[in-house]
Structure formats: C-alpha cells, structure tokens
Design a protein around this nucleic acid. Structure first.
Length: 327
DNA sequence: TCCTACCCACTTCTTACGTCA
DNA sequence: TCTGACGTAAGAAGTGGGTAG
C-alpha cells in the first residue's frame, strides 16, 4: 500500500502572496494529512500525489476553536475583514518593524516580487475581542510593557508567540508550499513584519509538526494492519488445526487428492483442480499474488472416485479457457 | 577544497492553560 | 469564587550535522 501525504495542491505556484485579499473566502484555512509515503520526500511534491491508491486522509485543521466554531460561511481570516487602518494595538512580537527600505534584510527592491500590493500591517493588532487576538497575559499586563521589558533585557531569549493572524497567514502559505525559496521567505517576512529567520524557523517547525502527525497516522494505520493480519493468522491457524484433526479422524478420505478451488473473477465460476496437498500449498505460495484468487477449502472436497478425476479434468479445461493458472 | 545556505533532528526554553488545594 | 503553585502541551528558537550548489 502506498501512503500519500496531501498538504494542499503543491503543484500550484506560490500564489498565496499574490492574492491575500481573497484567500480565505472559500475554504477554511487548514491542511489535510493522509497516510502517506513521505513527507520526507521533499522536493518531489508532484510525486507525492502520484499514487492511484486513495490515501487515508485526516483533517487536521490547525485553527483555533474560535475560527473552527464558526459556520463555514464565516470562516475567513479575521484581519482580512477589517480595514488595515483599524488596528491600533502593538505587535505581540515587537520585532523592529521592517522598514520600507527593508533595512532588516527583508528588503524587496524588485517590483515583481511576491509581495502583494495588499500589504497587511502586522505590526499593529486589532484589539477587537471578536478575534480573540489577545491572550490572558496581554490582557492582564499593560499593552506594550513586554516590549520594553524584552528590549531592555537584551540577553534574554526572545521567544514570543506569533499572533493568531500571523500564524494563520503562515498556515495559508504552508498550504501553498511547504518550503520557501528566499524570495518567498522575504516576502512573507515583510508582509508579516517578522524576521526572515522567524519565517524560516516557523516553516521548519511546521514541517516537523506535520511529519510528526504523519508518523502518528502511519503508526495508527500499521497498527490496524497488524491487528488485521494477526486476526487472519489466528483464523488460518485454526483452520489448519481443523484440517489436521480431520486428517487424523478420517485418514481414508485424506488419501484423495486435495482440492483447490479456483474462482474466475470475471464469470465467477469455480474451477476445481485436483492436486496433492503439497502441490496445493505450492500453488498458494507461488500464485498468491496472481489473479484469480485461489480459495483454499476449509475442508477437502470429497468426490466419489473416479468422477473426481473426470470433473477435475473438466474444470481444468475451464480454467485454461479462462486463463486461470492451474497447478 | 572551502564556503554558504538550507534542511532536519534534537534540544532548550517560554508561554498558555488546566488542575487543585 | 478567587488565587497562586504546579504540571504539561504547544510552539519559538538554538545547535549541530548533513548536503547541494
């Protein structure tokens, strides 16, 4: 079985940054995971989707309960519904804002860059409680106090939460492409008012999280496969015991050739091949992967001799007529 | 061969949140 | 009901090794 990971249509060009104004209007942000052959097989996104097997898909929408609880028609990235000028609260990350000149390395001098003309100012946050944008601590503390604290203590490690809006935007980008080229990284960084390094780290961590989820899904699938095979093995062992018991109790009949039923999948007729027990096993082993499927009888068919031979010959002819491999 | 940039795996550390006394 | 301590999960960021160009 082939496992496939679906993370959106990665064959598409990186269009997210080109259309931020409409991006969440149709589908809620999120991603889809399937038991897949490989998140590891990066740089081969097209190959990931090459399987004809329908992958087992998981819906792993990463969004907050606030968003997910909304009806689908209302599922849209909140900041897009707000005029950019409405924001007034300080950025939670409080990184030095990327200037128009891009002095922090996020400069995009080319007008043909991936930056959308729809520039969202993530240095400001909407204080509207509708979006749940402010966490408890932020509500408890004075706005912007953490900024000055961090800036005063330059030795402390800055590890601040991205805002929901920033995370949502990054998620949307991740849906488009799980990896970024430098241009996309710079564009995202500038658009989200983050450092390129932050965008890069976010994508690294996001890939790691996806892989972890995928591993969990694969593990669960293999677990179920193992359970199924264990049950099948148990059933076959029981069947074998029954056959052995029958052989012990009825040795006369067991001198007869064992019978293997061969079913033609097209006409659903059953062909009977007479063979020895060893040959039957050999047939099963050798042709296990071939069609038609060979059915081993739970109990040997007991045919009145010599009619058995005649019928076997007849069914063998049928089998050959239907391209059924006979032992 | 060295350098750079990038990725991944692993880890550290911060933050948010739930639980409980 | 409120509050503070505590545990824990999630996530941002650091580190080191591998690799491609």
């Amino acid at each position: 079985m082939e496992l496939a990971l679906s993370l959106g249509d990665t064959s598409k060009p990186f269009t997210f940054l080109d259309k931020p104004a409409n991006l969440p209007s149709k589908d809620p942000p999120g991603f889809c995971i399937a038991t897949g052959k490989g998140f590891d097989e990066k740089r081969s996104d097209a190959e990931k989707r090459g399987s004809s097997d329908p992958p087992v898909q998981l819906d792993l929408l990463p969004f907050t309960p606030v968003l997910r609880s909304q009806p689908p028609s209302q599922l849209r990235i909140p900041w897009l519904a707000e005029p950019c000028g409405a924001a007034r609260v300080l950025d939670v990350n409080l990184f030095p804002a990327a200037t128009e000149d891009g002095d922090d390395g996020t400069s995009l001098s080319s007008p043909s860059s991936a930056v959308s003309p729809f520039q969202m100012d993530f240095s400001m946050r909407n204080g509207n409680a509708e979006f749940g944008g402010r966490n408890r601590r932020e509500q408890q503390e004075g706005e912007g106090t953490r900024a000055s604290d961090d800036e005063e203590n330059g030795s402390t490690r800055k590890k601040l939460r991205l805002s929901k809006e920033q995370s949502a935007f990054l998620e949307e980008s991740f849906k488009e492409h799980t990896t970024l080229n430098p241009k996309q990284k710079l564009a995202l960084a500038k658009q989200l008012n983050l450092l390129p390094r932050q965008v890069e780290v976010w994508f690294q961590n996001r890939r790691a999280r996806t892989k972890l989820k995928q591993t969990e899904v694969d593990c669960e699938y293999l677990k179920r496969c193992c359970e199924t095979l264990t049950e099948e093995n148990r059933r076959l062992q029981k069947e074998l015991q029954e056959l052995r018991a029958l052989k012990t109790s009825q040795p006369f009949y067991m001198q007869l050739p064992a019978t293997t039923l061969t079913m033609c999948p097209s006409c659903e007729r059953v062909a009977t091949n007479s063979t020895t027990t060893n040959q039957t096993s050999s047939t099963i082993n050798n042709n296990a992967s071939q069609l038609p499927v060979e059915l081993s009888l739970s109990k040997p068919r007991i045919l009145p001799f010599p009619n058995a031979q005649a019928q076997a010959t007849q069914t063998q002819a049928q089998a050959q007529a239907h391209q059924i491999p006979s032992s």
